[in-house]
Amino acid sequence: MTSAPSPLTIVHVVFSSRVAGGERHCLDLAEAQAALGHKVHVVGPRRSALAGAVAPGVRYHGLALPLLRGWRLRRVVRRLGAQVCHAHLGPACKATATLGPEVARVGTLHVGYKEHHHAKLDGVICVNQAQRQRLSAYRGRHRVVYNWAPEPTQASQASGPGLRQELGLRPEQLLVGSVGRLHPAKGFDLLMLAFSAQAPADAVLAILGEGKQREELEPLAAADPRIRLLGFRTDVDAALRSLDLFVSASREEAFPLAILEAMRAGVPVISTQTQGPTEMLDQQPATLVPIEDVEALGRAIREQLERIRAVPREQRRPVAYELSRYDRRQSVAQILDFYRELIDLTNGGSSHHV
């Protein structure tokens, strides 16, 4: 009879002040690993929303200053006796790469491979096949493991009047939505221009999220009273179920959790042909449009809303997407298997070249 593998001591690293897509993945992965009996820690800034968002079985370690992050991280990892240090997003990957050979150093490519962030890591996790195909210069181990949509929380499914009622919409009005941090990469400026130009006069666009681009986007919203910038929301899952159409106008995306959550909610999806969505939506009942093509995006929104409006609201049914590859339990198991592969290589002193 084969004995179960010993529990691991795992340190996740993410140097963010807010919780967005990559941070949510990190927190949910940490929670899942802790639930399996592993000793799991998260290292991040002391004054971060992450500190209050970790699961009860996960311990958070806040670093006071951004200076000497690699040295500070090394002290935490050694004190905990960690076997794995898993970094999320560029600054964390850069700091993790400075650690010594006593720990397996892993990074998830939430955005994409960058040599100065990832080249010295022992292994990288790709979130889509296109990333794997572009790793010819990388000398470590790599594996494709698809992300998943974290389980809805009580807050994300909050009951109440609902987004449509909150916005004062009439039953016949169509609600278009998008979710994400307000950043140029997300293309909210393109979405707002496309919607203003071609959406039906009584349609409404709701954008859920906060970020540094808000000041730039506010004049675009002010120019069209149909556009609402709703800021950060905790009731995302409930809000998605209120939408008639979800749109991602991103200029770049590796694996957008918002699209996966919209698919889980059964909402029709339009997305630009960025790296992640092109793979996620292949052979799915969704619409892809060229990146930064406002005319094509607006036309797709108009045509999709016309199709939706042609069906009485009481007869509309959720869109059936194929989501089996985005299974949380399966992906967590694959990540743990990858950890053990890297630990064996580290302990054996073997080459990490693929």
Rank of each mutant, 00 (worst) to 15 (best):
Q275H: 05
A201E: 14
A34M: 11
H88W: 15
A51L: 09
E215C: 04
A149Y: 05
E292Y: 01
R143W: 04
S178K: 02
A82L: 11
Q129G: 10
L175H: 06
G107F: 05
A92S: 11
I308K: 14
V103T: 14
R340G: 04
V14M: 03
H118A: 12
L305S: 08
Q33K: 01
T234F: 03
R78Q: 15
Q133D: 15
G348W: 09
L36I: 01
A51Q: 14
S159H: 06
T2M: 15
L229Q: 09
P225V: 01
R340P: 00
P290G: 02
S178V: 00
E303G: 05
H353G: 09
Q334D: 14
T96A: 14
S351V: 01
E279K: 15
I343M: 14
I270L: 04
S136N: 12
L8V: 07
L99S: 05
F188N: 08
S3T: 13
P171Q: 11
N147I: 07
A20S: 11
G209H: 03
V54D: 03
S16K: 15
W148S: 02
L205S: 06
A49M: 13
I270E: 00
I343N: 01
R316M: 14
R325L: 15
R24H: 02
V236K: 01
L191S: 10
P268R: 13
A185F: 02
V179E: 06
G211L: 07
I259Y: 05
W148G: 01
R241A: 11
H142G: 04
F15Y: 13
R46H: 09
G90D: 09
P285R: 04
D244N: 06
Q173N: 11
Y60S: 11
Y113T: 07
A119S: 11
A203H: 00
H110W: 00
R241Q: 13
G112H: 08
Y138I: 05
G44Q: 05
L336S: 07
A49F: 10
G177Y: 08
L163M: 07
A222Q: 15
R228M: 02
V11Y: 05
E261A: 09
E252I: 03
E303F: 03
A203E: 00
A32K: 05
D235V: 02
E210N: 05
Y326P: 00
A197P: 02
